[in-house]
Design a protein around this nucleic acid. Structure first.
Ligand SMILES: [Mn+2]
Ligand SMILES: [Mn+2]
Ligand SMILES: [Zn+2]
Ligand SMILES: [Zn+2]
Lengths: 141, 141
DNA sequence: TCATTGTTTTAAAATCATTCTAAACTATTG
DNA sequence: CAATAGTTTAGAATGATTTTAAAACAATGA
C-alpha cells in the first residue's frame, strides 16, 4: 500500500500473482506501467521512460516483458496504427479515441458508448472482443 | 458493362475517374480488386493473385498501387493486426468481423450495428471515422 | 551459505512488412 | 514520331519486432 516506504511492493505483488519472477527489470517496468493511472505505451516509449528512470533494460526485454504481461492479462494490445503496437494498462472492457496527428490513445469508458446487438457471428465462431476506435483529428477551424 | 467483350473497360473507367494513368499494372490490379464483389486484401495476397493471373507486377508496385488507390478513395486501409495492412474495396461506411485464426476480414453493414451517441471528442478535435472490429474465434465446442 | 538448476536478460543478428532510390520504361500530348 | 512527365522495378534501406545463444540471475533445498 505505502509505496513510499516499499516502492516495489505493489509491482512485486502484481508479478507474484501473475506467476512471473520478480526480476529487477520486470519490477521496474511494472512500476512504470502500473504505478500511476492507466497508460497506453509503445515499446520505444517505455524503453525511453525506463532510461529516464535510470532503469537499464534492453529493448528486447521491453518487448519480452510487454508480450509476457499481455499473455497473463496484465496488459492488452491495441492495434490502431500500421506498424506499431500499443499496450494498454487498462484491461477492462473499454474503447478508444485515437488522435491521428499525435498518435495518442485515450480511453472511452465501455458504458459511454451504447452498442446495440451485434449481428450473429459467422457460424462456428464466437465473439472474443469488440474494439471501437473513434479516430479524431484536429478540428479544422 | 460487358466485361466479356471489353474486359478492361470497367477498370479503365475507374482509373480515368480517379485521375490515374491506366497502365498495364494498374489495369490488371484494378480488375482483380474491383472485378467481382467486395474484397479485403493484403499486399502479399494481391501479389500472389496477380502472379496467378499472369500479371507481372513487382511487390513495390503492389504497394504503390494500394497506397495510391487508398489516397484517391478507391480503397480504404483497415488496421486489425499488428504488422500487416489490409485494403478494403468497400469504401462505404461499414464495420468488420475479424477472424483471429484465419486472419480474414468480413463486412458488417453499417446499419447492422446500432451505435449510440459517441462521447464528445476531446476539445479541439473532431471525429474522422469510427471503426468497429468484432474479433471472433472458432467457437470452442 | 552454496551449489544446482531452470529462467531471464542481453547484444547482436535475423526477420518481415513496407518504403525508398535511381535507372529503365511507358503513356500522353503535340 | 519526339519530348515530357509519370510509372515501374530491382535492389537497397528502414523500422518494428523476434530470435539466438551466451552470460547473468532467481529459486530451491541441502
Ligand atoms: Mn505480440
Ligand atoms: Mn499506407
Ligand atoms: Zn485504453
Ligand atoms: Zn470491409
Amino acid at each position: 500500500m505505502d509505496s513510499t516506504v516499499r516502492p516495489y511492493s505493489k509491482a512485486y505483488d502484481i508479478l507474484r500473482n501473475a506467476g512471473l519472477r520478480p526480476t529487477r527489470q520486470r519490477l521496474g517496468l511494472a512500476r512504470l506501467l502500473f504505478g500511476d493511472g492507466d497508460r497506453h505505451v509503445t515499446a520505444e516509449q517505455l524503453h525511453a521512460e525506463a532510461a529516464s528512470a535510470n532503469l537499464r533494460v534492453s529493448l528486447a526485454t521491453i518487448y519480452n516483458t510487454l508480450n509476457q504481461f499481455s499473455e497473463v492479462g496484465l496488459l492488452r494490445e491495441v492495434v490502431v496504427k500500421p506498424g506499431r503496437s500499443y499496450f494498454d494498462t487498462n484491461t477492462s472492457d473499454h474503447h478508444h479515441f485515437f488522435h491521428e496527428e499525435t498518435a495518442r490513445l485515450q480511453d472511452i469508458a465501455a458504458d459511454a458508448i451504447a452498442v446495440g446487438p451485434i449481428p450473429t457471428p459467422p457460424s462456428g465462431t464466437c465473439v472474443e472482443r469488440i474494439d471501437i476506435i473513434v479516430r479524431v483529428k484536429k478540428a479544422d477551424k
